[in-house]
Simulated assay, not measured.
Amino acid sequence: MDTKQLLMIGVSMLASAAAGPALGQEKQEQYIQVAEIEIDPSQLDAYRTAVKEHIEMAIRVEPGVLTLYAVSDKDDPTKVKVFEFYRDGEAYRRHLESGHFKRYKAATQSMVRSLKLIRTDAIALGTKAR
């Protein structure tokens, strides 16, 4: 190996070492929660439309909203879970104050029979591109 190759390897190793702790800290600062929601069966279609529009808007306009997934129980579609990932707690607070979130809450208030928010810690997260 010549000096240039050794220098490139050294720079690469240094960059990886410096980025490692920063990436770990970023993950620790993320605000992650699961919302468990029970929907009035007679309003299920309207709720699905509202949550889909809300998620699309939040992902599009809020840089601190990293991931929002809404899923329903296959055997009981009135039981919905929303997996929420925010850059940090401040991003979550900004999300709650956004106009589109407030519109979503007002529009779905009569549709929601129960809501439970569960704060979580990431253990292992993985995503594969389609």
Results as ranks from 00 to 15, higher is better:
M1V: 00
M1H: 02
D2T: 13
T3A: 08
K4L: 00
Q5L: 10
L6I: 05
L6N: 10
M8W: 13
M8Y: 13
I9C: 03
I9K: 14
I9G: 02
G10N: 04
V11P: 00
V11M: 07
V11I: 10
V11T: 07
M13G: 04
L14I: 13
S16C: 09
S16A: 13
A17T: 10
A18I: 02
A19R: 11
G20V: 03
A22Q: 09
A22M: 09
A22Y: 04
A22T: 07
L23C: 03
L23W: 06
Q25M: 05
Q25K: 08
Q25F: 04
E26C: 01
E26P: 00
E26R: 02
K27V: 11
Q28V: 02
Q30Y: 00
Y31D: 05
I32A: 11
I32F: 10
I32L: 10
V34H: 07
A35D: 02
E36S: 04
E36Q: 06
I37N: 14
I39M: 13
I39N: 14
D40C: 08
Q43L: 09
L44A: 05
L44T: 06
A46F: 06
R48H: 08
R48E: 01
T49V: 15
E53L: 09
E53A: 13
H54L: 01
I55E: 00
E56L: 08
M57E: 08
A58T: 03
I59T: 03
I59K: 12
I59V: 04
E62F: 01
E62Q: 02
P63C: 06
P63E: 14
P63Q: 08
G64H: 03
G64I: 01
V65R: 03
T67N: 14
T67D: 11
T67W: 07
L68V: 07
A70P: 10
V71T: 15
V71K: 12
D73P: 10
D73H: 11
K74T: 12
D76K: 12
D76C: 09
D76A: 13
P77L: 00
T78Q: 14
K79I: 13
K81E: 03
K81P: 07
V82F: 06
V82Y: 05
F85T: 15
Y86H: 11
R87Q: 12
R87W: 01
R87V: 02
D88M: 12
A91T: 07
A91G: 11
A91C: 04
Y92F: 12
Y92D: 11
R93I: 00
R93N: 09
R94P: 05
H95V: 00
E97M: 04
S98T: 10
G99M: 02
G99C: 04
H100T: 01
F101N: 07
K102Q: 14
R103C: 05
A106F: 01
A107V: 06
Q109P: 11
S110D: 13
S110I: 05
M111N: 14
M111W: 02
M111G: 14
V112N: 15
R113L: 15
L115W: 00
K116E: 06
I118H: 15
R119D: 12
T120C: 12
D121C: 12
D121R: 15
D121M: 10
A124L: 14
A124S: 13
L125C: 03
G126D: 05
T127R: 11
K128V: 04
A129W: 03
R130Y: 13
R130K: 09
